[in-house]
Computed example of a mutant assay.
Amino acid sequence: MGRRRLGLALLTVVAIAGGGVAVTALTGPRTPAPDRADGKGLPPATAPVTRGDLADSTQQDGTLGHLGERKINAGGPGGTLTWLAPPGSVVRRDERLYEVDGEAVRLMYGDEPMYRTLRTGDKGKDVRQLEENLAALGYTGFDVDEEYTAKTAAAVKRWQKSHDLKQTGTLGPDRIAFAGSAVRVKETGSGSGSGGGDRVAVGDRATPGSPVLTVTGSEKVVSFKVPAAQAGSAKTGTRVQVTLPDGTRLPGRVSAVGRAATAGEDPQDRTPKIDITVSFDEPAKAEGVDQAPVTVDLTGTTRRDVLSVPVNALLALPDGGFGVQVVEDGAARDVRVELGMFAQGRVEVSGGGLRAGMKVGVPS
């Protein structure tokens, strides 16, 4: 029977549909192969039909680090810096960020900046943020809303008493600073990035609005880029395995996907790419220095409990469709098959009475 063997160089165009991947077109040279590789009609080599899970995965190079770099600026009237949270430390709600003239400025969680001194009668989102933090710390007795009431002021006084402060019932940027969550101190001052940056130290003068600390998010994440055409392989929620520099493999998921494609910095590769962020299931296990290289395995579609054969076992049949050469009892026969997912150098096959353990012909 005339047929054409599909070599590894053959290109397959696949379309994802119904949770699987099916061949929709085949291109490239199709040189006829001999019907039989030896006098007995047997192929030069065989491989087993296997049953198991087949996962469509890709591998990307990523970088271990922290996201959300921002500045913590000095509030209040200014003064001398008498203490700074050290680089590498993590500051959580109600913990000290820095001290001016011996007075601590503490972290509270929220996206609105602390731009004014809050007092009874004030209204706004910053009021709600403050009340949410007070409630989270156990200073309750008020409604969490956008109005600073006498009950809010009473809770503030209790907070002030717990920190040995004058109990005024008012609270301003000389006492607290807002950030979205716990922060990790990257460096002091405005850092040393592309803008030059200025470091500060204990004993320096802090003026209102001047950078005191550069901070990031507290949890380790992985960042990498994928070509815009492959963005579908890294949708939010996609499961991944991250291999750290020491070989440790940790599970995680895609937590953020960039909205705009940008050209890379490599002049040899200006392909538009999308920024991808991966969060770990157990961030505490993601040890290692910042900016360390890691490998990310993206798990795409998984086909459970299917039969598969090596891709190079496929035959293009003369009358259309595809088949494999089954070898049994010292003889070979061609069997038509239906194709499913292509992954890991294998292809899902069904039909023709195939079962796990059968041998199919492959090139030597």
Results as ranks from 00 to 15, higher is better:
D143L: 13
V349R: 06
D164I: 03
P251T: 05
V362E: 11
P293E: 08
G28N: 11
D334C: 04
T301C: 06
Q167G: 05
G102Y: 03
D94W: 04
R333Q: 11
P227D: 03
P48Q: 12
K151H: 09
V278N: 00
R36T: 12
S350D: 13
G18K: 11
R270M: 14
T207E: 14
V294A: 04
N133T: 00
P267M: 07
D319P: 06
V13W: 14
V200Y: 05
V335W: 04
V185T: 02
V49L: 00
N133E: 11
V221A: 11
R249Q: 12
L339E: 04
R239N: 01
G141A: 08
G2A: 11
R70F: 04
S181M: 07
L81Y: 03
T248K: 14
D297C: 02
E99K: 07
V127C: 00
D281Q: 14
E103I: 06
K186I: 06
R116Y: 11
A261V: 08
R30I: 05
A292M: 08
A104I: 08
G203A: 10
R270A: 15
G323L: 12
T238V: 14
Y109I: 03
F322P: 00
P87Y: 10
L130W: 02
P310N: 11
D94I: 09
D198A: 12
P318H: 04
G288M: 02
D94M: 07
D126N: 07
R92Q: 10
V100N: 08
D319V: 04
A153G: 14
L26C: 07
P293M: 06
G78K: 08
D290W: 00
